[in-house]
């Protein structure tokens, strides 16, 4: 199994994340995809014992993840687990995701809002998430409460698909991948997880930003539905 951590200028938190994953899951390989960082992210990750792939310039989460999936295919890994580099995901929940994969699921999302832990949003961002969750739940045939979660496990057949076609646009890595997988008949599930307050960085809460987010999320969603 391969844990992929897309990281862009996360030198403060990356080592902690890598250490924690390696401590919690001793048998897995950790691949940090340094997405064109201008700080010491790659060095810190390497020192912490992760495999490090350095992209020559910033491609966004989607680009970083596609590289992770390509690496997984070439390295013959069965399952890929994605974890954020800012430390908000607790690797202790990964085994629960893997249990669902073992039970036949293809894409398992570690979902906030699903009963465990506390996480709240308001305003346009909340509406956006509600619409996304509604539509994608319908598409996937199961209830998905947190479609934009960056914590997910992927089975081998889907890893192969993602290594070739992974949406690289804004929000594509979360919303569009779900639509892609659902429309191709892959089984999607979610597992409730608690997320921590980010150790570094700030979530964007401004109203204007949230409105733009809403509009862009809807565009991504519509595109995901009509794309071949």
């Amino acid at each position: 199994m391969l844990v992929v951590v897309p990281a862009w200028n996360e030198e403060e938190s990356i080592a902690g994340v890598v250490h924690e994953v390696r401590r919690t899951l001793p048998d897995v390989d950790v691949l940090v995809v340094d997405d064109g960082s201008t700080d010491q992210t790659a060095v810190r990750a390497g020192e912490a014992g992760a495999l490090v792939a350095r992209l020559p310039y910033n491609l966004g989460v989607g680009g970083a993840m596609r590289l992770g999936f390509r690496y997984a295919v070439e390295g013959g890994y069965d399952t890929v687990v994605q974890i954020d580099a800012d430390g908000q995901h607790d690797p202790a929940f990964v085994p629960q995701l893997l249990d669902r994969i073992a039970a036949g699921a293809d894409l398992v999302i570690g979902a906030r809002f699903a009963g465990v832990g506390e996480y709240r949003t308001r305003g346009p961002r909340r509406w956006a998430m509600a619409v996304l969750s509604k539509v994608l739940s319908h598409l996937a045939g199961t209830r998905l409460t947190d479609t934009t979660s960056g914590m997910r496990a992927t089975s081998r057949p889907l890893v192969e698909l993602f290594a070739r076609h992974y949406p690289v646009e804004y929000l594509g890595d979360t919303v569009e991948t779900l639509a892609m997988a659902a429309r191709r008949g892959f089984r999607i599930e979610q597992v409730p997880v608690a997320m921590r307050v980010r150790t570094t960085g700030k979530p964007s809460h401004a109203f204007g930003m949230a409105t733009i987010y809403l509009v862009r999320a809807l565009v991504v969603l519509v595109l995901a539905l009509i794309r071949r």
């Binding site: 792939a53 350095r54 310039y57 491609l59 680009g63 590289l67 070439e74």
Partner: peptide
């Protein structure tokens, strides 16, 4: 660029 990253690794 993905290819480059893999090759560098």
């Amino acid at each position: 660029s993905e290819e480059i990253a893999l090759l560098r690794m």
